[in-house]
Design a protein around this nucleic acid. Sequence first.
DNA 1: GGCGTTCCTTGATGCAAGTCAATCTGCTTT
DNA 2: AAAGCAGATTGACTTGCATCAAGGAACGCC
Lengths: 241, 241
Amino acid sequence: MHGSCPDCPVRHQAICSTCNAPELRRLEHARYDRRYEAGQVIVWAGDRLDFVASVVSGVATMSHTLEDGRTQMVGLLQASDFLGRPHRERTPYTVTAVTDVVLCCFRRKPFEEVMAASPALSAQMLDRTLDELDASREWLLLLGRKSAREKFASLLVILARREVGGPQASPGGELQIDLPLTRDMMADYLGLSLETVSRQVSALRRDGIIRLNGNRTVIVQDYAALLTASGETDADGGPLS
Amino acid sequence: MHGSCPDCPVRHQAICSTCNAPELRRLEHARYDRRYEAGQVIVWAGDRLDFVASVVSGVATMSHTLEDGRTQMVGLLQASDFLGRPHRERTPYTVTAVTDVVLCCFRRKPFEEVMAASPALSAQMLDRTLDELDASREWLLLLGRKSAREKFASLLVILARREVGGPQASPGGELQIDLPLTRDMMADYLGLSLETVSRQVSALRRDGIIRLNGNRTVIVQDYAALLTASGETDADGGPLS
DNA sequence: GGCGTTCCTTGATGCAAGTCAATCTGCTTT
DNA sequence: AAAGCAGATTGACTTGCATCAAGGAACGCC
């Protein structure tokens, strides 16, 4: 649970930075929370979405599906991520709650009105959208040109970088990643079959690059090797440096 | 060649709609043209780009490259498309002129200042960016889950929809598509090898769905079949209806 | 504690697309 | 007209990943 916007908890960055803009105070009457249970669909592709929202807690996915059931994930939403499309009635992909999800929503129309009057908010929306676009274009490279091993290693690197509150380094310089997704959701993320994902997990483990702690926690033993395996070009500093 | 903004030719839609906003008149001093020859690189990945621009004529690509040379196209720019990133110094992908290209440029800083003062221009930028994001997410589905045949058919559908000035329907209800790309650029677009692209051309031809007029002009004989082959779900009306 | 469900792993097999290589087709150049 | 060249096609072979199939491990529930 989070209070009114000025009192948002730290992790709730999106709304904090948004609500701290004075113009946004005027939006309080258009603000409300929504809760979804794990597995529930938040919007179906093609349906109306009359709010924009910030993810307070939980994980959700955005995905496209072909008629025969093949699906490709096109977005992964975690705490502080933004959901919704100003000036667009309909959402072209399906959004699904992976865990229980809490959204901090604003009715779309009032939000758009405030946006029109607030250059700061407009700039922030554009900035977020450009970030998503950049991420999406990296994803194109991953799907179009990377091998299964590179894809999975890349996913681990991406998740490591996004770990909310900074990645957890355990003593010994090891890095812990909590997987927010099951194997078959990772398969939908990576454009692979779930069996191939599983094989890549095993392969990286055999190579001593990662270790598992249960099915959902990966401990990275050799981050440099992981980066290499991901096809990453630049030593980006990474979450541990 | 195009004149000052209020006199832009029809095809130069981006600048027209932009420049017709009164605020943008103030940008005339920051406006200039740039010309590139076919094959020339406009920006390298990671380099600064100090202008934003509208494509006046020609075709350019945006692409990511891995160290070993594998490349994935992440954007295709044609007349009236927008190039550049407000509030971002550097461009994360390489932009290359495929044909001779003319850009109508604005220095980035003045553009950003006008944007901050003009809700209309901000809204337009956000709108364009959301369009690119949607296109990019469709592209993820294509790369992640479609077969070679579906990929190539999808590309033809995309190009048909984008043909500037509306697609050309020849007598007999046939649809003509001028390919802006060579086979191996199409391969980079689709995440395939150039040989596979070539085989898909031949396959669609054998099936009577398309006919070729030289290497660069495709005549669609059966648009419905092409749509089906692309994995398209909805009868979208399409360029001929 | 036992049982069912959901998620994960591993193996065997097949196929779509990649790779390597040879040839063909227009275009441009001289 | 001949030569040269970039781009496209086609064939033969290889391979990475999907598919099909059978268990195994973790976690809930009664």
